[in-house]
Amino acid sequence: MIDPPIFVLAAVTTTFFVAGLVKGVTGMGLPTVAMGVLGTLISPVTAAALLIVPSFVTNVWQLVSGPSFGQLAGRLWPMMLATAVGTVGGARLLANGDTQVTTYALGVALVVYAAYTLLVRQLLVPQGYERWLSPVIGLTTGVVTGGTGVFVIPAVPYLQALGLEKNDLVQALGLSFTISTMALAAGLALHGAFPVDNLAMSALAIAPALAGMWAGQIIRNKVNPPTFRRWFLIGLFLLGAEMIAKPLLSDVAL
């Protein structure tokens, strides 16, 4: 079990408040921010275990606060099922502790997608492609989630490319992230890498994460759709840049 000194508690509290704020505004980013910051203080697998409870709680809140749960669940269930399968299987990568290469590749994909969409045009998935593409995206997302503890690629660009309305997009992200969180916990436990003793520390992160998410939702509700989309993509770009920089900085430090 982690013996948390004051500075670690302060770091966890601050990290999850900021992560919740990002999630409240954009509908995503809590695990990415949390893994990015906490990964510099503790091991990646321990950081992943710490984000399980606040991630689950904030994702469920995000999921149930939207207007279209039944419709979205009926439309996206093949993707969700494939995500769960891929995450449980891919968790072996995270359990082994070597996520540097996958995290770097994930960051590159985020940066390229966000830059392309910001500077060129909105990508859209043709309606006839969704039935077969959703399981492929879900399985790929699951493997990436299992390997990095981050839920965003390729699920987030794909869901955005479905052309969902702002609140439906945020709710669909909540559905995807809820499934990913539960599957990640199951996968880590299956591979003997889920430190149950750290659940108490994880539970302490719920309050700052919810406080940050509440503040972020207030901000999001005051933003018009074009502005929301632009900042959503800027958020993706920054998250990707952080993922690229972290392995490079680690190599320089060595």
Rank of each mutant, 00 (worst) to 15 (best):
F7V: 13
V8Y: 12
V12C: 10
V12T: 10
F16E: 04
A19I: 01
T26K: 04
T26D: 07
P31K: 00
A34Q: 00
M35G: 00
G39T: 06
T40P: 00
I42R: 12
S43C: 02
A49E: 02
V53M: 13
N59S: 13
L63T: 11
L63M: 15
V64N: 11
F69M: 15
Q71Y: 11
W77M: 14
P78C: 08
M79W: 06
T83W: 04
V85E: 07
G86F: 02
V88W: 07
A91F: 03
Q100L: 08
V101S: 11
V120N: 13
V125I: 14
E130N: 12
L133M: 15
L133R: 10
S134H: 13
T140A: 12
V143C: 03
T148A: 10
V150R: 02
F151T: 00
V152Q: 07
I153A: 15
P157Y: 03
L162W: 10
K166G: 09
N167T: 11
A172G: 07
I179R: 03
I179M: 15
I179N: 05
S180L: 03
S180K: 04
M182K: 00
A183E: 01
A185W: 03
H191Y: 15
G192F: 08
V196Y: 09
D197V: 06
A205R: 01
P208K: 07
G212S: 09
W214K: 08
I218W: 15
R220G: 04
N221C: 04
T227A: 11
T227Q: 14
R230C: 08
L233S: 08
I234A: 14
L238V: 14
L238K: 06
G240W: 01
E242T: 10
S250H: 13
